[in-house]
Amino acid sequence: MLILHCPYCGVDADETELAPGGEAHLKRFGPGSSDAEFEAYLFQRENPKGVHFERWRHANGCGKWFHAARCTTTNEVFGTYSAQVTEPPRDIHDKITGKRPGWLSRWLS
């Protein structure tokens, strides 16, 4: 059972209180984009074995969307963070690097 800490209301919410929102940090390609970009935005998703970033909504709770970083193989949760960001915050990034040295980050700076 997955338990995620809601960063908005501060409770540890059980999976059954949450609604999944799919992959996080997608960039929207709308009017004016190429067909290939639009197709990728609509249909192409990461399906990693390991570190993954997801959107969740605390549906049976405060109702807010938030982000979570977790491992798809062990279900280890690295952390949850605000929905108002376009990439994982530094502390989450560092925490994952500490636990999964050598993981391939899309946001390496």
Binding site: C9, V11, D12, A13, D14, T16, E17, N60, G61, C62
Partner: peptide, 17 residues
């Protein structure tokens, strides 16, 4: 699924679940 343990859910606590 809320944690109703006396140490976690004390008098005054309010939780939507």
């Amino acid at each position: 699924p809320a944690d109703m343990h006396p140490d976690r859910f004390r008098p005054g606590a309010f939780r939507r679940t």
